[in-house]
Design a protein around this nucleic acid. Structure first.
Length: 668
RNA sequence: GCCUCUGUAGCUCAGUGGUAGAGCAACCGCCUUGUAAGCGGUAGGUCGUCAGUUCAAUCCUGACCGGAGGCCCCA
């Protein structure tokens, strides 16, 4: 039998005996763990047919990793059922960097269980069980899965319909299949699972020293709050021990940079219990970083033609009735304060009173500014900007440091323009956004276009189509990767969001740009056109930082606390060799302060080595050390954060070097 | 909101059914020092809050308030 074997860009004709599989073409050492036959991923041992086109799936490729991890999930499930025979199987898909498997168990997993499961997984891997695929009819499956109620639900034993969800690897193929794990020595079937596959040929393809059971947690069955709570076992699997190790190192690096941890270590902010969950207070050093971030943003917005406004934090409910927020998002708002009501002694209402709400968004306020007087087409585009503080009643379980807070300040602007102005406005806006983010030190971006969610939207199809198309065109002009987020838009319009990668490769959603055809109608916004007729403007919502707090957290993690000099709360630490040199450094500090440099001199009675250690731990960009030699030469000695040094630098040169690093916003 | 875990000094953490300790930080001394921790001393906690069990609770139980990891959510 002849097949076409594709390897990279080359292809050749392979001659194989009838009934052979891709395993003949790709031995274990090749690293291929599955095959693509005529465009479909299948098991390596799936029989080939005359004329098939075959290529291998490498264990390190995205598809290969998914197969490896999905197979590891099966091993984890088998291990769990060996140890806890009453555990009922849920689903077990591969995920980014690992896999999970869900179980219905009487007791939640304990740390000892996780250790035991990992050990048992290694035993199973060592026993080289073959993953053997078997097609079954629905009736056969129902009989065979009688002891697995959740698997029965997946094949629709109760509802008659299979569950269709990309995370559900069990079903969704053209036929139902069960994978048997067959012991290499005895030929006995040790374990079986409903699964559409494919899998690695046998468990020894999963490197036993490159798997790890990570944690467990509760999760709703199929992600539905109304369904049972399952115990989810998370694990990870990699092609090699080294890759597992570097993944674990990545996790520990991420932990070290956690903004919540750095926030207290560097004395930047805290979340006092007395204030409440999700509400941050910024300390002086955090305040400096924040102020510098804001100042630079404000300056750039001024240059870009934005006008600055200010609006209150609370408002009567009527405003959010008008905007629709009370209809759509009252769950996310703090409950109202009912004010000004008066009652007669018998309880009869004497005076009605009103509900006041903390604002969860600024746009309705800005709309009121727009409509405070008649507007002319000559004023458009009108760009209203505000560092607007908003309050959202996030569910208690989702609050997370500065990235998911209950009170935060948006760098929020609303642009009112005509339909003709919209494409140009979107283009310059994207240029502006990306340029500004680059100035803060982020450089690796992709864009995401979120489209209409038919369940949750207002407005006509035509409006959505036009707005979405304009956003797409603007996004495509940036020559960045554009990802489609189908159905991810807000109820009032489609959006582009800018996703930025940080220093260790994690992506964060930064800026959002949303076109809105709805609020102008709800607020009856109008301007007078050149022909004297009333026209309705289009509105664009945009925030670059998202929120200042969130952006602060992203930068803090991106830089691991070692801010570039322009953002660093303390830019220079003066370190005297002994007390005798304090005055000398104070004199230099005076000069530097007159150049706008944030410098402090450590005049404590610690030793100089200790002062260096302290400044290093505080991640101060420049340490200026002075002793007798420096005083004699009218110079200072630099120590940089990376430990390198430069001695005997003339004071004027030192000032130049530091001032220029600040002015150019470079990292050092 | 749901599940599991968790809460001792400013920070990191020990510890016990008979009301508590260490290191660092702070404060006070001594030392006067050339590139990541000098030495000594002092002070600091109603053991998250409120109930319950007990002769006795920081420890056991419950509720509440924080926090962590997930789930759901994220305008």
């Amino acid at each position: 039998m002849q097949v076409t074997v594709v390897e990279g860009l080359d292809s050749r004709i392979g001659d194989l005996p009838a009934g052979a599989s891709a395993a003949e073409l790709f031995p274990k050492q090749s690293g291929m763990i599955a095959a693509v036959v005529n465009g479909v991923i299948v098991d390596l041992f799936a029989p080939l047919h005359e004329g098939d086109t075959v290529s291998g799936v490498h264990i390190g490729s995205p598809e290969g990793l998914a197969i490896l991890r999905h197979s590891a999930a099966h091993v984890a499930a088998q291990a769990t059922q060996r140890l806890i025979p009453t555990a009922k199987l849920g689903i077990g898909p591969p995920i980014t960097d690992g896999f999970y498997y869900e179980f219905d168990v009487s007791e939640p997993f304990k740390p000892e269980d996780l250790e035991a499961i990992e050990k048992e997984m290694v035993n199973i891997i060592k026993s080289r069980q073959r993953f053997s695929r078997r097609v079954v009819s629905r009736d056969e499956a129902v009989i065979e899965l009688a002891g697995e109620p959740f698997k029965l639900r997946l094949i629709g034993a109760d509802t008659g319909a299979q569950v269709l969800d990309p995370d559900v690897m069990e079903v969704g193929g053209t036929e139902l299949t069960i994978y048997d794990n067959v012991d290499a020595k005895t030929g006995e079937t040790c374990w079986s699972d409903l699964c559409r596959g494919p899998h690695v040929p046998d468990t020894s393809y999963i490197p036993q020293n490159a798997i790890k059971v990570m944690r467990s947690s509760a999760a709703y069955w199929l992600g539905d709050q109304k369904q049972e709570s399952m115990q989810r076992l998370y694990g990870t699997a990699w092609p090699s021990k080294e890759e597992l190790r570097s993944y674990l190192e990545f996790l520990s690096e991420a932990e070290k940079r956690d903004h919540r941890k750095l926030g207290s270590e560097l004395d930047l902010f805290s979340f006092p219990e007395e204030v409440g969950s999700g509400l941050a207070v910024f300390h002086p050093k955090g305040g400096i970083v924040r102020r510098v971030m804001e100042d630079y943003s404000r300056r750039r917005h001024e240059e870009a033609g934005y006008e600055f406004v200010n609006t209150p934090h609370i408002t009567k409910g009527a405003l959010f009735e008008k905007s629709g927020h009370l209809d759509w998002y009252s769950d996310g708002m703090y409950p109202p304060m009912h004010l000004d009501a008066e009652y007669h002694p018998d309880g009869q209402v004497k005076r009605q009173g009103a509900d006041y709400y903390l604002k969860p968004m600024n746009c309705p306020m800005h709309n009121l500014i727009f409509s405070a007087r008649g507007r002319s087409y000559r004023e458009l585009p009108l760009r209203l900007f505000e560092f607007g503080t908003v309050y959202r009643y996030e569910k208690s379980g989702v609050v997370h440091g500065l990235t998911r807070a209950r009170g935060f300040t948006q760098d929020d602007a609303h642009i009112y323009c005509t339909l003709e102005q919209l494409p140009g406005e979107l283009n310059s806006l994207l240029d502006f956004v990306l340029g500004l983010l680059r100035d803060y030190g982020l450089s690796d971006f992709y864009l995401e276009l979120s489209t209409k969610n038919p369940e949750k939207c207002v407005g006509t199809d035509e409006e959505w189509k036009v707005a979405t198309e304009f956003l797409r065109l603007a996004a495509e002009k940036q020559n960045l990767e554009l990802v489609l987020d189908e159905g991810g838009a807000a109820f009032y319009g489609p959006k582009i969001s800018v996703q930025a990668k940080d220093a260790i490769g994690r992506t964060w959603q930064m800026s959002t740009i949303q076109v809105d055809f709805q609020l102008p109608q709800r607020f009856d916004l109008e301007y007078q056109g050149s022909d004297g007729t009333k026209q309705r403007p289009i509105m664009v919502h945009r925030a670059l930082f998202g929120s200042i707090e969130r952006f602060f957290a992203v930068l803090l993690e991106h830089y691991a606390g070692a801010f570039p000099p322009w953002l660093a709360p303390v830019q220079v630490e003066g370190i005297p060799i002994s007390d005798a040199h304090v005055d000398y450094l104070e004199g230099i500090a005076e000069q530097m302060r007159s150049h706008g440099i944030r410098i402090e001199v450590d005049s404590s009675d610690d030793r100089m080595q200790k002062k260096i250690r302290n400044a290093q731990k505080q991640k101060v960009p420049f340490m200026l050390i002075a002793g007798d030699e420096d005083v004699a030469a009218g110079a200072v000695s630099f120590r940089y954060r990376d430990g390198t040094q430069k001695n005997g630098v003339a004071i004027a040169d030192a000032i130049d070097e530091i001032a220029s690093a600040i002015a150019n916003r470079v990292q050092v």
